[in-house]
């Protein structure tokens, strides 16, 4: 009888240990809490926001293609591009200049892309805009694109007027990436391989024709997000190793080089197969703060003047931790922030 009692205690003890270790679910929100705030799937796929005209958003959606979205009626309308293109539009090749939408498909290595366009107020009027450049990427929703020539020199141009050259990255770099905050402020990062076959990144911040070189403590990692607070002369960047760097004495109008300070805080980022992919930066461009969706879909605020990071997930009326943000568009005319998501359509964030 004593034996049975002892075995019962051991079984209960082991069960308790299992409950405590496995039952904790430390890394994520509670399961039923997640369910209770879950958002309905919208059958359009991933939403890449490209532009806005009054109350109509324009986006490339992976399940349907080019679409418009009425922010009042919350209805999607497909924009038929089938008479013009035979292959899929690339999500990275969709953008706008505030009046027109531009899009393109994948081109073979070294071949030029055919860029199509239509006015946002006349979606049936699709035409070929330009086919003179090998386009690497657009920087939606801004009027910027990265092109490459046959000698592997990289150029940033206006999509609306490709002859307008903003900056050049000489050959020798690999994986040049373009991220933008406006039609004028954009960041390029690219790497070369050092003697030990390790990546060595260079970072260039441009304001129109001005170009500054940014120096971080480490050059091993790519920048995944940046934000320039033009009002207060702050800048912050987040690298792929989750480090936050900042400079609160930054002059966007200067073309001198800037050395950053490493923040004591880090941002926990979602593990992704595309570890260098650019993150949507959520901001209204009016303060030192900007926001990033990180691990577990939590939203973090980053103070570009101090480098401080704070979890602000619960500050939003939208259940942001139950959706994954893939694109961002701020409508300055109405001070409205829109997010495109992986599987839940479009939300008005604030």
């Amino acid at each position: 009888m004593k034996h049975i009692k002892r075995e019962s205690y051991i079984t209960l003890f082991l069960f308790g240990i299992i409950l405590l270790t496995v039952g904790c679910n430390l890394d994520y929100d509670g399961i039923f809490y997640q369910v209770s705030i879950s958002e309905e799937t919208v059958e359009v796929g991933q939403v890449y926001l490209a532009g806005i005209d009054s109350t109509t958003l324009f986006a490339y959606t992976t399940d349907v293609g080019m679409q418009s979205y009425d922010t009042v009626s919350e209805e999607w309308t497909e924009i038929d591009t089938s008479d013009h293109i035979s292959s899929n539009i690339l999500p990275s090749l969709v953008s706008s200049d505030g009046t027109n939408i531009y899009f393109s498909t994948r081109s073979d290595e070294g071949e030029n892309n055919k860029i199509y366009t239509f006015p946002m107020n006349d979606t049936d009027n699709i035409s070929v805009h330009n086919s003179d450049y090998d386009v690497i990427t657009f920087a939606a929703p801004f009027d910027l694109m990265l092109t490459k020539d046959s000698s592997d020199n990289y150029y940033v141009r206006r999509i609306s007027n490709p002859a307008t050259l903003l900056t050049t990255i000489p050959s020798g770099y690999e994986a040049v990436k373009l991220m933008a905050q406006s039609d004028d402020i954009f960041l390029l990062n690219a790497y070369t391989m050092d003697d030990d076959d390790e990546k060595e990144y260079d970072y260039f911040l441009c304001n129109g024709l001005n170009k500054s070189t940014l120096t971080l403590d480490s050059d091993e990692y790519s920048i995944r997000a940046f934000y320039v607070d033009e009002t207060n002369d702050n800048i912050a960047v987040i690298t792929s190793d989750e480090t936050v760097y900042y400079d609160n004495d930054f002059d966007i109008d200067s073309d001198t080089d800037f050395t950053f300070v490493e923040s004591d805080d880090t941002v926990s980022l979602e593990t992704t197969t595309v570890e260098d992919s650019a993150l949507p930066v959520i901001t209204d461009y009016s303060s030192a703060l900007f926001y990033i969706q990180g691990d577990n879909d939590y939203i973090y605020s980053i103070d570009s003047s101090t480098g401080e990071v704070e979890d602000v997930t619960d500050d939003y009326t939208v259940s942001v931790s139950s959706i994954t943000i893939i694109s961002y568009l701020y409508d300055d005319s109405t001070s409205t922030a829109y997010i495109g998501t992986i599987e839940n359509g479009v939300y008005e964030l604030y």
Partner: peptide, 15 residues
């Protein structure tokens, strides 16, 4: 008894 619960990337052993 107990149950092994799973949802998305989360799991939780519960009563």
């Amino acid at each position: 008894g107990f149950a092994y619960n799973s949802y998305d990337e989360s799991s939780y052993l519960s009563l």
